[in-house]
Each structure stands twice: as C-alpha cells, then as structure tokens.
Write a protein that binds this DNA or RNA. Sequence first.
DNA 1: GACGGGCCTTCCGCGGAGCGGAAGGATGGA
DNA 2: TCCATCCTTCCGCTCCGCGGAAGGCCCGTC
Lengths: 240, 240
Amino acid sequence: MGVASRLLDVLAAFDGTDLTLTDIARRARLPLTTAHRLVGELAAWGALERAQDGRYRIGLRLWEVGALAPRGLGLRERAMPFLEDLYEVTRQNVQLAVLDGRDAVYVERLSGRGAVNVITRVGGRLPLHATGVGLVLLAHAPPDVQEAVLAAPLLRFTDRTVCRPDELRRMLAEVRRTGVAVSDGQIELVALSVAAPVRGPRGEVVAALSVVVPADGGEAQLYVPVVRAAARGISRALGG
Amino acid sequence: MGVASRLLDVLAAFDGTDLTLTDIARRARLPLTTAHRLVGELAAWGALERAQDGRYRIGLRLWEVGALAPRGLGLRERAMPFLEDLYEVTRQNVQLAVLDGRDAVYVERLSGRGAVNVITRVGGRLPLHATGVGLVLLAHAPPDVQEAVLAAPLLRFTDRTVCRPDELRRMLAEVRRTGVAVSDGQIELVALSVAAPVRGPRGEVVAALSVVVPADGGEAQLYVPVVRAAARGISRALGG
DNA sequence: GACGGGCCTTCCGCGGAGCGGAAGGATGGA
DNA sequence: TCCATCCTTCCGCTCCGCGGAAGGCCCGTC
C-alpha cells in the first residue's frame, strides 16, 4: 500500500534480464496503464533505461544510488584490498557477505579462472544454514533471527546439508567457539567453504568472509589461518 | 513532477553519509511531513535503513536492485578477470567507466596499496574532457554529446587540463586514430592515465578502461599494449 | 493484403490517496 | 527549567494518480 511500494515493486520485478512493459505490469501485479506511467517516470529520471528494442532494464542512475549503501559498496571498498590479497594467495573463490533478514547477501566475489564454479552472484541471496558465510552470520545474529531460522524448515541442497535444528545449533556453538565456520559440501558436493567473521568498530559482526575450494582433500584447515587473518584485516580497516 | 520523481529525489538526496529526516526534507525540497511519509515507506521496503542514532542511509535492498543494472555490475562482472590481470601486471590503479549524459561514471576501480591516490570513487562521476576514460568515451560518443561537451565551458583541474575546444577536437581525432587516450596531468599533476575503448557485440564503444600511473617518467607508452590488450579481452567477453 | 494478436501509448472523468499545516512528544544542551 | 531541534501523529481538503476504454503500431499467419 502506498505509492512507494508500487514503485519499488516495479523495480523489484527485474531479475537481470530486459523486460517488456507488459512483463513488468504482470510481475508487479499492476494494471498496464499504471505500470506504463510509473515506468515512464522512472525512465525519465534514469532509474530505468530502454534497450534498442524498447525493453526496460535497470538504469545506471539507480546503480549509482545503490552504490551509496554503506553495507554494499561502502563495505566492499574497504574490504577489497584484503579480498585481493586472499585471492592472490589462494587463487580460489573469495566471497564477502552480509546478513539481511534471514538471508546472506553476497556483496563481493572474486573468482579465479580455475576456481570451483559457485552459484552465488554479487547482489544475490542464499539461506543462512548451509553456506560458510551464512553459518558465521547466523552464529552471531540476534537471537530472534536465530530462532526464526531454526524454527523454519531448513532447505536441503545436498545430502550433506545440515537440516536438523539440534545439529545446526551445535554447529553454531562451534562456530562461535572457534571463530571459523566450515561448510563441507552442504551447497554443492564438490565445494567446501571456510568462513570467518568481520567485525565493526563496536565488535559486532557486520559481515562474513569466505574462501570456496574444491572439496577433495581434507585440507580445509590449511585455509583457516589465512581466512581469519584477512577477516581481521578488514575488521581493523573498519575501525574495530 | 509526479510521485516517482519525489521519491527518487529523496533517494538522490543521499551522498554516502547518514542523513537525518530534516536533512532529507531540506535537500529534496519537500515539506517535512511529506518527507516523513515517503522515507517511512522506503524504509519499510528496505530501500532505506536506519542507523542506531535514527539517521537514514541507503539500504541493502536498493543496492541489490541496482546491482541488476547491465551497465553497472553486469558489465563489471564480465570485465573483472581482465581488470585483475591488468592490476597484477601493473600494480597501479585500474579503472572501468561508462558514458552517461555528459559524464564518465566509474563502474569499477582496483587500487593497489602503493598506487597513486585518485579522486574517483566507484559510482562517482567526472567530466569527459580531462580524464583518460573520458576522452575515450567522448571520442566515440554520439555527435550531439560531443557538440554539447565542446560547446559548454570546460572545467579546469590543473594548468595542463585541455580547455580549448579546438585543441580538444584534435585530441579526440587522435584518440580515434590510435585507439588509445593519454591524459597527462589533466586531473592531478602527479597522475597520468592511459585508456582504451571496450566494445560491445556490434562494435559500439560501451565502456573505457584505464590505468592511472605516476606522471614522473615518460613511460606512458609502456602501458599502451597491456591496456589495449585488456580492453580487447573484455570486448571479446562481451561478445564483440 | 486483409486479418488477428501482442504490445504500447494516449485520453479522460471519478474517487480516494497523498498532501502538508498544526500540534504534540522526545531528546539534549544551555 | 527552558529553549531548540528533530521526530511523529492527526486530520480535512484537494488534487493527482488511477485504470478502463479505445486506438496505433508491428509482426507473423492465412
């Protein structure tokens, strides 16, 4: 209800592909005429752009505004040097994520040519209980978020995904104790991730950092020190 | 005029710092009450977030939507591997920018620890006539954009900034002829940038890539091949 | 080349949603 | 305690956004 929500629904209708006006109207559940007017205003401002074929896409102006989000590019900017270091050392996927609602949102990802293929995308979301970064974020999340996640059904990705609440609770305690999370084959059997918390000035966990490597050897422990070091580096850069 | 523009004005009021409601109302030239309602709706949706002290900042949801912009993260995603290569070889600032209106908008920037400090920021804008990427973009821009830029007064950054239209015209011709632009001390005296065009599937110039290095030696030519190679690599990745 | 089906765009009158002035908390500094 | 600043709630008037209807435009089909 309200103007804003209608407008934002229009924006939320996009998924990365170009959309026709009718697509937008359908997805946003708006009458065609209404969609037409809203889209027209958004395009006039630059929040949407038109492709040569007349379809609409998210515009650069909106990207610019989004780039001002402290938890988006702001965080990324400060973390980047450490992510690059970590990437150069490991030559594997390096990921940075933050908590939003009951999801982990991926803020940055560096992936080498030879690295494991992962399903994440910058700007994408994954549930908290199965990924390395998710476990870290969940382990340090406010109690109500933890309870909400534990109470809801836990989506299974592979047969190694931890879906039992009591088992997950134990894992979270372990993550808090050791300061590191290891998610072994819980999203894809071939991948394993090692994650550590990034803390803000007041010691709160503001993000999580991980490396995703092939799940063949038992070498996960090898990555623990370097991931932890990078995470601490970022925390320091944030003023922690 | 219209709902959308009011809402977008609220978003455009932000500049990276947290704002109080009154700040927003003042910047967007809206009555406090109106701003209050709009901001409330935006915050409820997640486009804005509140800091602990009650101030507002751009929210993660908006960043997520912005991340869907093809000319923003879409382009960045494909270009990233080449930017990293270029960065590793040069250890200097590597920048990727696109044309919007009469500005160059910086889509990505990798900066080494020891590299020259540059004033650009991801998501930021600079005029076209003085930077390396700007010259490349301007040289291949539609005629009306070129004329508009050449007709308007050209902002002077240093005493090496090219501000005379005829001189600028000559430079643009040179950029088109050689396929490379060199901006020497035109933004800051201590910095020099070498830029090359990135082309889309149809051969149109969709972005520009540059390396910013210290302006001490006459070694600009040294960087030309590697910048050009990286730009061609990205063009190929885009389907050109 | 006439026809039909998607799309997009313009027009316009009705109704309710948004507008913003006024007043009342909340907070913090002098 | 008083004042200043900022935030929030309330409410009635008006104006602006709403969306149905109708008409172009384009394309593939018969």
